[in-house]
């Protein structure tokens, strides 16, 4: 980290390799679109390199995810303004490159279907609720780190997490009811 702060590109690239997975996955789950997630991930590391002097203390991963969340928010705002393709149509979060063990074809199909349902349910949440759920449940940040990454109090984070999960539950129950008549 110290070498990176002094402008050592090789040292910084080691940090990129270590954290590009979490950054890319958060962007992918927030945006539901692989090309956009790639663009955001690259932008995050460029911004991070330029802003390394501002990183003070705490979790470097949480700091990177803060930049990621802000970049995703900006992109979603632009997308909303341009009235681009709806989120429903863009749900294509490929599981082909996932690091999960290879299942049987039936399991694979079912798993893909469940993952698609979860992603669709996530897409129905507001930006803030989705971010809270993803930071805690997908990225494994603790409540304090997630609250700092979102720039909110612990109470607000708990509230957003609770509401986000409650809405997810509703959507998943509805989807399950549709899938199993």
């Amino acid at each position: 980290m110290q070498r990176s702060r002094l402008g050592d590109l090789t040292a910084f690239n080691q940090l990129v390799e270590r954290y590009q997975g979490p950054v890319y996955n958060l962007a992918l789950r927030m945006l539901s679109y692989e090309a956009a997630a790639e663009d955001v991930t690259q932008e995050v590391f460029l911004s991070a390199y330029r802003a390394l002097g501002q990183y003070r203390e705490g979790s470097f991963k949480a700091w990177l995810l803060t930049i990621t969340a802000n970049a995703c928010r900006d992109l979603l705002r632009k997308r909303k303004r341009r009235q681009e393709t709806s989120l429903e149509e863009m749900v294509e979060t490929s599981g082909d490159r996932s690091v999960s063990p290879s299942p049987t074809p039936e399991e694979y199909t079912l798993r893909r279907e469940v993952q698609r349902e979860i992603q669709q349910a996530l897409n129905h949440l507001s930006h803030d609720h989705r971010l809270a759920v993803l930071l805690v449940n997908l990225q494994g940040l603790d409540y304090g780190e997630a609250a700092r990454a979102m720039g909110v109090s612990l109470g607000t984070l708990k509230s957003r997490l609770s509401r986000g999960r409650a809405q997810l539950r509703e959507h998943l129950l509805t989807a399950r009811g549709t899938r199993e008549p």
Binding site: V16, Q20, G95
Partner: peptide
């Protein structure tokens, strides 16, 4: 609610399609 949390945690960590290392300092 517990199942919902488990479902989100069970989402696969997708391997990035490429590396995002910087070729040169921006």
């Amino acid at each position: 609610l517990r199942d919902t949390v488990q479902a989100v945690r069970g989402l696969p960590q997708v391997t990035p399609p490429r590396t995002f290392t910087l070729a040169q300092a921006p």
